[in-house]
Design a protein around this nucleic acid. Structure first.
Lengths: 348, 348
DNA sequence: TTGAAAGCGCTAACAC
DNA sequence: GTGTTAGCGCTTTCAA
């Protein structure tokens, strides 16, 4: 009636549970013959390992915990996809938590992950994460902690990010090369590092091309479509000569796009537009949105690889390696994606 | 150094592990005073429950397994969101698997879920799921199985779906009311029930309005944007008088939209368009896409509620209830969302 | 190459 | 109201 155990198999074959366990785990000390015998018996009896028991005993769950702001955001969906692919082929499963950008849920997620004894945790930190205590907790428990995209240097953990500064620089320079010169920027909350980096990239690209940096051309929004609309409205009201917008996220770019379209402004002719993030809707809006791709799948794969390395180090028994060597930081190259919104037609 | 256990707390307070366990679980037979004592001690010692041990002993994991085709599809993302909200507030966590529409991954996911002793499993079946053995396995183990959207009657499990027939009927009738009469349909694989239902709804709406059903106006695609483009191309080549398209999924609607736009056809004036699914991109394409909303979050909540009911029944000890009463089937109402692509301007 | 024994950390009868 | 005992199903020394 109830689940078959290794005891049942042992009884059936007049052998011992420990032998069965070893055989099923392909332990070298068991003869090929008995392995075969035990495996077929397991099959016949419909045996399925109890991972709870196995994990409790061995101390390994083969589960990796993921905490992201939201899987609705295309970028995070892509990262999870990348992690999943590698995890699956390495025999790991994922336990996924969404913080919904609130610290409270983030803490809750980390707590549950720790209770579940996951083998490692991969995180992109929530925007309003109140403090980092829960992450220090993870480190105290010696559970490998890997960060991506939304990183905190203080945590001193392996991490993978893209070069936000460079991406913003590329986006801005692309607009300049297309002949735009009064280029506005819609940024995000400045306490989030990536937005500050993108702002710097924008500013430096202007300077490098001998264009003035004008505070009136810079808006600080939240990351919503609505916020993008409002920013575009304000920018337009204040700058009659504005001829392009670089938005720090595709969502605000979309909002701006909508507003300008409704205002009867032709893109890319009158105003050029480029976003950041290559969201799933970006190819399908009109005009299709130029943007910076962050290579999410790649980022996920790198993050998982970092985790694997941390595990290897851990089982190599090296105590407190982190004191000896700085944690690995992987910086991915952003990729410029040119679509309709930023390609100025040849002047007539 | 290593994790604090209830033994450590017991030792600290000169009491027994079982008392500590009961106190921490708020068992009624423990006095308020000792509970308080134990709780603060737990806090001080930085105690964290080992869920593996707890689950192994109690037989409950408080984890619910989810298997969906892909969380990239907006609809499934929404359902997961709905499940998560309710699960969280009921003390459950989710273990999420994506089948990527392949039976192999689906089987693998179910297998792992069973090994992990999840308390229940909520599934939307993959398109090419080869057979249903893995689901019968779940039922055999008496693990509550809940289906949503992609359902199989044979499994005789509680389920929640929307009324696909009705949604398709509403979509088609909406086009008719807008004055379109040569309405094409881009369907999907007919062995998937929802596509067949939608096709029937389309056909019946035409008939009910005394419009002929023309095989030349029906295409059977896959669910990709590319497939939508091809379908639109074929439809247009074969039917010069076609004046509207109802696509069984937003993805094919989008493909058709792109093709028609490139062909210089004005929507909604020359050809009206409506999709199904209310994907995240649908409001942002040009023209914005009318569609049928499937209430994904609602569906997720209903599915989890069904799971809770199944658990209650199970613990009520009713052996083989399923023989006594038919499994509950919840049918959600589709919602018509009218946007630009289907609203015919007043004739000039 | 196989088996016996111990125990991972917890919960749940049952006795006190 | 509290403590004793047993054991969930597995892995892992260690001895044979």
């Amino acid at each position: 009636m109830s689940r078959t155990t290794i005891h049942d198999i042992a009884k059936e074959l007049n052998t011992s549970p420990s032998t069965v366990s070893k055989a099923l785990n392909d332990h070298p000390s068991i003869s090929a013959a008995t392995k075969e015998l035990i495996r077929t018996a397991a099959q016949n009896l419909n045996y399925r390992q109890n991972r709870l028991a196995s994990s409790l005993r061995s101390g390994r769950t083969n589960i990796i915990g993921i905490v992201i702001p939201s899987s609705d955001i295309g970028f995070f969906g892509g990262v999870v996809h990348g992690i999943e692919k590698l995890a699956r082929s390495n025999g790991y499963n994922m336990l996924l938590f969404q913080s919904h950008e609130t610290g409270e849920y983030e803490v809750e997620g980390i707590e549950t992950l720790l209770q579940t004894s996951v083998d490692g945790i991969i995180v992109s930190i929530a925007k309003d994460s109140p403090n980092l205590d829960h992450f220090y907790d993870v480190k105290k428990r010696k559970v490998p902690l890997i960060l991506f995209d939304r990183v905190k240097e203080e945590l001193n953990s392996p991490s993978v990010v893209i070069d936000d500064y460079k991406g913003a620089y590329m986006a801005t320079e692309h607009l300049i090369q297309q002949g735009y010169s009064r280029i506005a920027h819609i940024s995000g909350p400045q306490h989030v590092k990536i937005f500050n980096d993108r702002l710097c990239g924008y500013v430096d690209a202007l300077k490098a091309n001998n264009l003035p940096v004008d505070d009136d051309l810079i808006q600080y929004g939240r990351n919503s479509i609505e916020s993008g609309r409002q920013s575009a409205e304000r920018l337009l009201a204040r700058n009659k000569d504005m001829d392009a917008i670089f938005a720090a996220v595709d969502f605000t770019a979309l909002g701006a796009l909508q507003y300008l379209k409704e205002a009867g402004i032709k893109m890319p002719e009158q105003i050029g537009m480029i976003g950041f993030g290559n969201e799933s809707f970006s190819p399908y809006v009109t005009p299709s949105l130029s943007t910076i791709d962050q290579q999410p799948a790649r980022m996920g794969e790198e993050a998982f690889t970092l985790f694997l390395e941390a595990m290897a180090q851990k089982s190599a028994g090296s105590t407190d390696v982190d004191i000896l060597e700085a944690p690995k930081k992987i910086v991915l190259e952003p990729v410029l994606i040119v679509r309709e919104s930023s390609v100025r037609k040849p002047q007539s």
